[in-house]
Design a protein around this nucleic acid. Structure first.
Lengths: 212, 212, 212, 212
DNA sequence: AATGAATGAGGCTTCATTCAT
DNA sequence: CATGAATGAAGCCTCATTCAT
């Protein structure tokens, strides 16, 4: 029965990969099954139909990200450190599984039409992390009173797009466009996170007037 | 022959809408045709196959965005004004046609596998706008020496995600989650752009030491 | 109105070519029209629908062949000369328009399902040529009493297959198989006709006992 | 698993029938499937696409004929007997499966454009049978030195056309044309083979000078 | 628990044909 | 006369899903 779980694991991983690469409609059940080392019918036995498979993947991905972000928020009390921790936690989450960013964005782009309430709650957990960091900072007079939702969009959007653009950047490089134009196709995720963190620090923090 | 162009126009618009909502694989040629008021065969007569249709849509969307951004860059010499103009131009482009952001992101998420070189050149034009604004600012000592690519990711990612999240925010609202959690599902695009512009101003500008 | 006939001519020629190469079902009205330098709708105006086009081509092809064979039969009274004349007349007909042999065979192969009575009468005229040559020879004691139908099958079948096999022989040659195996892909039609004529002379003629 | 082969068998048979009657382009996958007692999708499951189906049919047909002819050649050493055996073997092959002659001719008529190398090798095997019979006869002084290729064309062309013309002859009969004109629509294949065999014997053999 | 086989539904594309201009 | 445009019908193929073994 341990084996049973392992099979499920492999199926879900293969599905995440496929959905990320091809979207829901483009992904093929057969290919997912083969990639997981099972028969097509086996996939149905272990997980259910395509919709259910997608749902499971979504819940798992979003809740994993939510877990990581909640841990980041809990790691410190300082608002600026919190933002920094959030940014780097999200960056790591995406780096550990680029499929996460892809699927999340693809599904958001579709308007969340097929997203279950279960998934919506994970989405909310994620947002709450940013919201809490910002609110506590504002209340404590450390952060400018910006809309936490905008901060969230900025953080998630920037990092997601960075991950997503990986293959395209590689293509830019192979076309020889990058060098000429200053695009560095090999820029590591960590630097992007550092940039974003610095941007938040300089752009959201209340300027420290030196006590006269 | 004016009518001919109009038909093409309607087809391309319907296609953009469909691809944005469902992705390439999920979009249905039949539905696109009907939405454009043509027969399925008529669509093939006017545009060609699904791939070509997608390609046309992509080129158009990306080049329209590139045009707007280039105009924004050309509108001023001041680096900070330029960034502000860029952010708002992009926001307007997305507001005028939300499908733009969706399709762009979906395709980037797929790794740009199906993107032609023609489209890649538009992508590059878009990036060059940000790059030029940042570089000129850095060279003139007005902006901190940050990687223009990161700035670009931040700008495009933030605004794209904001647009994309529209329907999902509406859903959050209808589930009654928004109120409780501080998400404002009705936040207008303009405010998001203002936030981003301010973030860049505070976070990228070289602090002005008062001349002694 | 002379031009009108010329257009019809070009259409019928293009159609013959197309039907020969691709069969009735495989031929494309559009391609035929373009090859004839007309619009698709123009083809309909000049000839009618695909079935009618095919019919016209068939009647023309078969009646041309019938004309040639009847002239050959009329050219001499000697049975053996007649067979020789028939064989060479048919060979020339096929050489002048290889499409003839192809279409004839393809249609015969289809069982003549779509062949009109008009065409059937041409088929009969053709057969009558061989039949008359054989019958007169048999009656005059110059030919062995073989079934004229078999002679006809032999003549038409041999020459048709020879013409048809042209492209395939070329392919055999390009695969380097011919040389090795004694197939001469460049054998001219005339030699095939000579062979057949000789075969008939030796195989059908009543042996001439030398007058004592 | 025996059933699996049986299904394949039925599909290939139905396909041979259809391709023979309507050519490659004219044959309908749906009809083939139904004739074989399978679903359209089932056909794809068992064989693959239309092209592959055609290829399989071709290889099978040609190789079966090649097998029969090789057996005929091996059955005797006498050149004239060999030719006789070849003619009758081919006649039987065509009689057992009239589709064979039809498909072979239709494909040859198309110029063998779609014929794979695999099929070409079967074609060559077939030709080699005639070639060997003729060559051995010529070398042994029993046959006149005629081009084996011409003999081959004559044998295959005659018998093929005879088979093909079956339905058309039936039509001639039903139109009442046959009686009047001496066409015997009911002539059996065997007689045609006998005729051809006799023609070869009289027309190709070296005349036996009486031993002095 | 696993799998080969089967299939209804539907997707993309092409084609012959017509019609208005 | 000529032609660009339109379209219903049909063809090929794929896919998610189920079932018997």
């Amino acid at each position: 029965m341990d084996e049973k779980l392992a099979v499920r694991r492999r199926i879900l991983d293969a599905a995440a990969e496929a959905f990320a690469r091809e979207g829901f409609a483009g992904a093929r059940v057969e290919r997912i099954a083969r990639a997981a080392g099972v028969n097509k019918a086996g996939l149905y036995y272990h997980v259910g139909n395509k919709g259910r498979l997608f749902e499971e993947v979504m819940v798992e991905l979003f809740s994993e990200v939510a877990d990581r972000l909640e841990r980041a928020v809990a790691s410190t009390d300082d608002p600026l450190h919190r933002l920094d921790a959030l940014v780097h936690a999200l960056a790591e989450a995406f780096e550990d599984g680029p499929a996460r960013a892809r699927i999340m964005l693809i599904e958001v782009a579709r308007g969340g039409v097929n997203v279950s309430e279960k998934v919506m709650h994970q989405v909310e957990r994620i947002f709450q992390c940013t919201a809490q960091a910002v609110r506590s900072g504002v209340e404590g007079g450390r952060l400018l009173p910006e809309n936490p939702f905008f901060v969230h969009m900025c953080m998630v959007g920037s990092l997601s797009l960075f991950v997503l653009s990986g293959p395209m950047r590689a293509r830019v490089a192979s076309l020889g466009l990058g060098r000429k134009n200053g695009i560095d196709p090999t820029a590591p995720m960590g630097e992007m996170a550092d940039f974003l963190s610095a941007l938040f620090r300089r752009g959201l923090a209340v300027p420290q007037g030196k006590p006269q």
